[in-house]
């Protein structure tokens, strides 16, 4: 069975249908690109998968559990990690604290164990600290580890979000436009990073991105949305050459072959 199974999902906001009956799946250790013009419903679909929205219709199955109606905080412990399109960091906390906060779902020590610094709490803390150090190194954040995140440039904050999502060792990582605001060299680096992450963390990635060359380079498969409907689903090559996709992008002033 697939790791993530989205089935006939519909999301309506008042009169607006943001997602109009979308189905697709992501296999284990797969990188799946999710593309579509602005307003296609990509972020809305992310919010449904990660439990922030409850869909008007349809269902989501993740890691063998029907998660459609689970509370929001129940998704991370199942192995779902995500980043946000417009950044959702803990502003006043340092980079390291942000990353450590991501380890919350991997820990168990509660109020009592922490106040008394019981051995269980200390062990957990040591494990989290070690993992945080590894991720800070991997994402080139070591030099800024003790700086408040709000003082950092956008691109660096995006990397903090990625580290924060990775520290809990998710099975599926949802990335909402990780290349936003990056230049060409940095996008190249990001592509290498995503491949490295998939290999060493043994996870799947669902990637929303407008940067076509990046999506086509790293994805095993691509799903294309337009106006809340799925218009293509297949290998990068199949999707890139699909007439529906080309029409959707040309109609929107984009070029699927650009970059």
């Amino acid at each position: 069975m697939a790791l993530l199974e989205v089935r006939d999902v519909v999301m309506r906001f008042g009169g607006v249908t943001a997602v109009g009956g979308v189905s697709f799946s992501v296999e284990e250790r797969q990188i799946c690109g999710l593309i579509g013009p602005n307003g296609a419903g990509k972020t809305t679909l992310f919010n449904i998968i990660s439990g922030i929205y409850r869909p008007s219709e349809g269902s989501v199955t993740f890691a063998g559990t029907n998660t459609t109606a689970l509370p929001r905080h129940a998704m991370a412990p199942l192995g779902l990690g995500r980043t946000f399109q417009n950044l959702a960091l803990f502003r006043s906390m340092s980079v390291r604290e942000n990353v450590l906060a991501g380890a919350h779902s991997a820990g168990h020590a509660g109020f009592f164990a922490n106040a008394l610094r019981l051995p269980a709490a200390r062990r957990e803390e040591a494990v989290a600290a070690r993992r945080a150090d590894e991720l800070l190194a991997l994402l080139a954040l070591r030099d800024v580890a003790d700086i408040a995140v709000s003082d950092l440039p956008f691109g660096t904050q995006k990397r903090v979000e990625m580290a924060r999502a990775l520290i809990s060792q998710p099975k599926l990582l949802l990335l909402d436009e990780p290349a936003g605001g990056l230049n060409h060299g940095e996008v190249d680096e990001l592509a290498r990073l995503l491949e490295e992450v998939r290999a060493s963390f043994d996870l799947s990635i669902l990637l929303v991105e407008h940067h076509m060359s990046l999506v086509m380079r790293v994805s095993d498969k691509v799903v294309a949305l337009d106006f809340g409907k799925k218009i293509a689903d297949g290998t990068p090559h199949e999707v890139r050459t699909s007439p529906e996709v080309i029409r959707a992008y040309l109609g929107d002033g984009h070029d699927a072959h650009a970059a």
């Binding site: 990660s50 439990g51 922030i52 929001r72 905080h73 129940a74 998704m75 991370a76 412990p77 995500r82 946000f84 959702a88 960091l89 803990f90 502003r91 006043s92 906390m93 604290e97 450590l100 906060a101 991501g102 380890a103 919350h104 779902s105 820990g107 020590a109 509660g110 109020f111 922490n114 106040a115 008394l116 610094r117 709490a121 957990e124 803390e125 989290a128 924060r164 809990s168």
Partner: peptide, 25 residues
């Protein structure tokens, strides 16, 4: 002790960004 560990970070995370805090479990 409480504030510098897992729970203290969660308290501050909830203050700074409840949506992201929930996404962290």
């Amino acid at each position: 002790n409480l504030l510098r560990g897992r729970i203290g970070r969660a308290m501050m995370a909830v203050r700074d960004n409840p949506t992201a805090a929930e996404a962290m479990g």
